[in-house]
Amino acid sequence: MAKLSGAAVAKVEEICDAHQGEKTPLIMILSDIQRTFGYVPLEVQEVVSQRTGISVAEIYGVVTFYSFFSLTPKGKHVIGCCLGTACYVKDAQKVIDRFCEDLGIQPGETTEDRMFTIDALRCIGACAAAPAVTIDGKVYARVDVQQVPGIIAEYRGEEVVA
């Protein structure tokens, strides 16, 4: 079986047990795991299956249905580009394309150094700031393609300093 550390197994079981009173807790368990581990790999799903009695096939089906869950770890910084309609009609596609181009990945993917993940989002409620980009929760308003390299450098630079 998997190389889950003992602590990791214990954590997963703890999360499962925390939702024991619920009638149908699977998605809540998976949300907590996604938040704690940053992803929900098959190994973790096996532990959830053993703990809850829900088959791995079903858990896997749920994990791959919802875009909130990921099978691979996300990067340190998650770049969420809004592709909601209000942003799209204001050239948001160009912005995300530029992020993808500069980082060499597709939406949903993570750079090899695990620094960045690009996610395409749907309306983050800042339509007035379209096109909007959020990075680790911080919202960048009216982003222009030209700003993209600078924004990336901002987060890369911080790494160099640290």
Binding site: L42, S55, V56, A57, E58, Y60, G61, T64, F65, L71
Partner: peptide, 20 residues
């Protein structure tokens, strides 16, 4: 009981098979 097969992914990428 604990089935082996399930749906995976969604939309045009949806598939049926054992997990992963």
């Amino acid at each position: 009981g604990n089935g082996v097969l399930g749906f995976e992914n969604r939309g045009f990428m949806a598939k049926v098979g054992p997990a992963q």
